[in-house]
Nucleic acid binder design. Structure first.
Lengths: 209, 209, 209, 209
DNA sequence: AATGAATGAGAATTCATTCAT
DNA sequence: TATGAATGAATTCTCATTCAT
């Protein structure tokens, strides 16, 4: 019972922390604020986490855990390449919608001057998706489904770039506004956008049958 | 003469400011540092600019000016669509190489919690490229060169997303490391990457002739 | 049995407390640390003692108790004045060796800004030795053994000063290093130092026979 | 004029700092308090000094400077050994009276857990007086004025111990009260005490002529 | 007009003390 | 009764901004 409560509290602390970091960025986020919004005292924050950096890493790790779990699914699907791309696009948007702060925190660490540890954490996640996508593209190549002339690694990079921008576009304020600039609020229709992305990624990567 | 001197000084101030902001991010950048590296006193900084935010905006504006100038060229070229894409990819990398701080500052404002003014400034630039790319895609459509089924606005968005990631990949530390994860240092060959991007963008956007 | 256990525990608490206070000084000593090293919770510490000050006083009192016991012995010895001085020097060093924390805590309260209570406690001990030494010097005077012209009270003060510095020199880091500065490690020989002190105290206080 | 003002201000800062450190000890002294009592903002304190430790060292150094200057005089006097001792006793009291905070700060660092730098500073001063006194005792020995059997180093140590206790007794609250315990307020007469100390030190160290 | 010393609000962090379990 | 998690006041230190010189 006590354990249960603790876990719930810990969860709330991480969530409120992620929220603050996602909204304000590392520097502008305030430990006092986070404590307040999580309904605890600063002391607790420093009981569980050594310092602000450490706490940020914990929030980040917590946020990215979900992401890497999703990634693992990706491999297991037994579907055609086109379906896979489509499903991944859906997955990405779904994840973004459910974990906006995760995406925002992720974007946050792409900013300059971050702790070694935060960097490593993010790079770890990246390396997972990098491997996943590279393997996938290599498999496509093997199956003669990848366009001739295209290097699998470059394809994987291109593919992830597109997905990353998609995520940012749905969660990071700046990119969201930018998306509207391009698509207007008319096309603020996820299905249309996904279909379009599908078409372009298909054309970019896959051999015409 | 005095005017001339001032302008040069102003130039240096903006450059040194952009450098500091690009390297350390807004919060970690220090007004004192900037003044020092520009060879002036903080007092002067505050004579020209109301506050840190205001000065950041000035640096950003200065950095992005070059970007929007380049953009205008884009429209004037009289070349085939494929050439245009290739040339743009080259242009983007060239710009990145010559103005790394511009790209980094640009990336900086994509971060959370920025001033209204900085946002507007960036949005202004974005709206220029958005219009440019949308017009271009519309023209392609008109000329029946854009792939059937593809909405020009979505194509423009997709296209700019790719270019943006390319810029970040060449200038923002985090994305640079990420690029290496995907491509390894083996493919750290700009020409190969550009050619690959070309192939994919071509396949994504343009009708098969 | 329970009482017995408690007493042992109390003993350990006081000892570990004295150790921490002696090593780190009042401010840097941590209640949590003390509790931990005594194998209890902070709650218990605050059950027995009102606050840090109060606990410090208890530790001090405990440490100084031994000192005042030793002092009482001093009076009972039936020996010549010279023997008495020599024996006291030995006693002081012995005490210092067996109760380094007591000496260090004693030194600690000589520092500025201590509680009224701690002050009173120490003053109480001091007043015992002051009386003891003054009585002794008065007795020497009576027996015409004290040097002519010397006021017994001044002699007692002088005598205790010497003993106090001796104690500090053997227990307080700073004074230990200082001792080495004067005597070098060559004379880091207690017997020689005591003999020398003897000679000087003898010459300072006692009438030439 | 500007320089003059600065120097005066600096002087006040160091004095107010020394006062606070002398009165409350390092830990209890508050930078905010010190700034306030010196009529400046905390920022100034941190402009001139890196941190609290650094500022403490500066205060200490400033306080001890006077002490080491006085020490140098000691060597130059051309007087008889007995006169020298007497004059030194006067000097010590005079210094104590004029620089009570210096003595208190000095006593403060004899407490546990101090910075390496503060330690070195104090040890430096100590080493000067150690050398001075040892040389002096060696010279006395040479001139056959030191008591037979007494080792000059031990004599120097003994001598400085007495002087140190004298200083503490006149400046550090605790030792001041202790002095009264021994001497009562009746003998709170410096001249008498000095004369008595003279007699005892003479008897302790010097050969009977 | 230029300087850079001074200001002081605000941030991170610590730790004696309390109190729910 | 014992525990140790939680509290929050207090402390050090930073840095954008001001303003006397």
């Amino acid at each position: 019972m006590l354990q249960k409560l603790k876990e719930e509290k810990l969860r709330e602390i991480l969530e409120k922390g992620s929220k603050e970091f996602a909204e304000k960025g590392f520097e502008r986020a305030s430990m006092k604020n986070i404590a307040k919004s999580a309904g605890i005292s600063v002391g607790v924050l420093y009981k569980y986490y050594e310092n602000k950096d450490d706490f940020f890493n914990a929030c980040l790790e917590d946020s990215l855990k979900v992401l890497s779990e999703k990634m693992e699914e990706f491999i297991s699907w037994e579907i055609t390449p086109r379906e896979r791309i489509e499903r991944l696009l859906h997955l990405v948007l779904e994840f973004s919608r459910e974990n906006p702060d995760a995406v925002r925190m992720y974007h946050e660490i792409t900013s300059s001057s971050f702790t070694e540890k935060a960097r490593k954490l993010a790079t770890h996640i990246e390396s997972i998706s990098a491997k996943t996508y590279r393997d996938y593209m290599a498999a496509l190549k093997e199956a003669n489904l990848l366009k001739e002339d295209i290097i699998p690694e470059a394809a994987a990079f291109f593919f992830d770039n597109c997905l990353m921008m998609l995520q940012f576009s749905y969660n990071v304020d700046y990119f969201d506004e930018r998306k509207k600039l391009y698509l207007g609020s008319v096309y603020d229709n996820d299905d249309v956008l996904i279909k379009q992305m599908m078409l372009m990624l298909d054309g970019a990567l896959l051999r015409r049958d």
